[in-house]
């Protein structure tokens, strides 16, 4: 039995250890948000976070995940509340046919967690392993930048509020 955390919950699988994480997520665990594109690590459709870093789940054996933490696209939103990235993808046209979108969201989420002020080059580097065949990449880059701006605005508002709160308290 292999035990690992998926989107915050401990899950178990009796899949063979060399089964791909991708297949275990999609079939026994029913998390079909993660897509299979190429199956050889080139398209990024199957991107998930493994211990906080983006990986292609088609290249990870599930036996390697024992005790580790996986976040899939289903684990990004807080209940019905979408993340700034998910909102931006909807509002700014980052999502079209949808096949690359889960992987794009995961790769972009990993970027924003380490850098909330990315340059366009940083964004393009972060999603270089995610192929989109319909929108072109500009709207995706714009969506990620819009989300980054939203995250920065929220952080600065929060820090101003806590500062103001501190002053009042003093």
């Amino acid at each position: 039995m292999i035990r690992f955390k998926v989107n915050g919950t401990v899950r178990e699988t009796d899949a063979p250890p060399m089964a791909r994480l991708l297949d275990v997520l999609r079939v026994p665990l029913g998390l079909t948000g993660t897509k299979e594109g190429c199956g050889e690590g080139e398209c990024g459709a199957c991107s998930v976070m493994l211990d906080g870093v983006p990986v292609n789940s088609c290249l990870v054996a599930v036996g390697q995940c024992e005790g580790r933490e996986v976040v899939t696209v289903e684990g990004l939103a807080h209940g019905a509340e979408l993340t700034p990235l998910q909102r931006a993808f909807i509002e700014d046209g980052g999502a079209q046919c949808g096949i690359c979108t889960p992987g794009m969201l995961v790769a972009a989420e990993a970027l924003l967690r380490r850098n909330t002020s990315p340059t366009d080059d940083d964004v393009r580097d972060a999603i270089a392993g995610n192929l989109c065949r319909c929108t072109g990449y500009q709207r995706i880059v714009d969506s990620i930048q819009a989300a980054a701006a939203a995250v920065r605005a929220k952080t600065s508002k929060a820090s101003k509020a806590s500062k103001a709160g501190g002053e009042t308290g003093a």
Binding site: G41, E42, G44, P54, V55, V60, D125, A128, G129
Partner: peptide
């Protein structure tokens, strides 16, 4: 390292 595949390959 930046030229190897892309981030998802570089992390593995």
């Amino acid at each position: 390292a930046k030229d190897v595949g892309a981030v998802q390959i570089q992390t593995r």
